[in-house]
Design a protein around this nucleic acid. Structure first.
Ligand code: ZN
Ligand code: ZN
Ligand code: ZN
Ligand code: ZN
Lengths: 141, 141
DNA sequence: CTATTGTTGAGAACGATTCTCGTTACAAGG
DNA sequence: CCTTGTAACGAGAATCGTTCTCAACAATAG
């Protein structure tokens, strides 16, 4: 007999606790900066832990869909991930070191909503990110 | 004799008037929506004009560096181009058909500047785009 | 413990973009 | 016009991030 009989947790995909997922979660919670899948893969492997590249990609995507990670795209097209706070916010990212500050902008939210409405657009989302050099990376050599 | 003798226009790269560039410029000025290099390539070829894919990429990049085009990245990572007005503005883009409205947001500009300054960031740029469904694409079947 | 089935990972496949390099064709000169 | 120097082209190979395939593995419920 295989069928789920009743009342317990819906035993679908994405809920097993594996060594690989633990490693990725841990590394993400230690990360201040936005990082790419490739970077996570290299970092893990550098610290002696073996995790398949495909698994890194899969897990990061899954965590993103589960709302546990924020995503953004670097200038050269790489997808970057970061564990952020739960409330809606935007990012101030250092172009040099990746360090990120979460910022909120009520004014921006309002503007986005009204601007979209004025033009008859529906189901509107917004992408709002700031890029610059953090205080540390701003300093001369 | 080859050398530029004097006072005329600096005859560097990027200034020859070729059939390919005319075609691309024309198509862009007729386009209301953001489009990818691949799309431009397909469209040209569909109307019987032959332009190499590499040329499409090169020309779009060159025009962008020359400030003649705006760029943004679609959700799935493709780079999209559009001929826009010269002043600083942001975009309200239809996810379905690509139709784009240029919008400005003084409030956003101010917010970006102050938020970055508050955290000691320098050389700050911002990415602010709105995505949704335009009035036409919002209508049911 | 055993069966079930979600997970993993090596490597192939993909798709957008970039590079190579021999050929073509602007556009100044003469 | 015709000659030249060289910017621009373009077909195909090469990159590179990401996704797919599928056989081997390992969490878990019973
Ligand atoms: Zn965040
Ligand atoms: Zn920094
Ligand atoms: Zn624009
Ligand atoms: Zn539309």
């Amino acid at each position: 007999m295989t069928a789920r009989t009743s009342g317990s947790a819906p035993a679908g995909p994405g809920r097993r606790d594996t060594r690989q997922r633990r490693l990725l979660r841990d590394q993400l919670s230690r990360q201040e900066a936005f990082v790419s899948a490739q970077q996570m893969y290299d970092d893990l492997r550098a610290s002696g832990d073996r995790v398949g590249l495909a698994t890194v990609y899969r897990t990061l995507q899954a965590m993103t869909e589960a709302g546990e990670l924020d995503v953004l795209r670097s200038d050269d097209g790489e997808v970057l991930y970061r564990q952020c706070g739960p409330q809606h916010h935007h990012h101030l990212v250092c172009r040099a070191c990746g360090v990120t500050v979460e910022v909120d902008g009520p004014a921006v939210e309002r503007w986005a909503t009204t601007a979209a409405a004025e033009h008859g657009f529906t189901e509107v989302t917004h992408v709002v990110e700031l890029f610059g050099l953090c205080a540390t990376c701003s300093r001369p050599s």
